[in-house]
Amino acid sequence: MNEQSVGTILAIVTLQMNMVGGGAPIFFARDEEEQQKVADYLSRILDATAHDLGNGSLILVMH
């Protein structure tokens, strides 16, 4: 159970190219549909949870 609050950001899937940067790999998506699809695939591949930041970015976090 992932009760611990610690998590690592494994990847970022974003629509806002100019709003993200930093250590994690960033995937740019053209529209929301593509963003959802990429995030879904990535979450399955990485066994990670996709979280919505509400500003056009999804982060994939390993809990």
Binding site: Q36, H51, I59
Partner: peptide, 20 residues
């Protein structure tokens, strides 16, 4: 509530993928 799953008024977790 947006992406946050709620059990009544308690926030449980943020689910980013709509299908989920």
């Amino acid at each position: 509530q947006g992406a946050v799953m709620m059990v009544d008024e308690i926030g449980i977790m943020n689910v980013g993928i709509k299908e989920m």
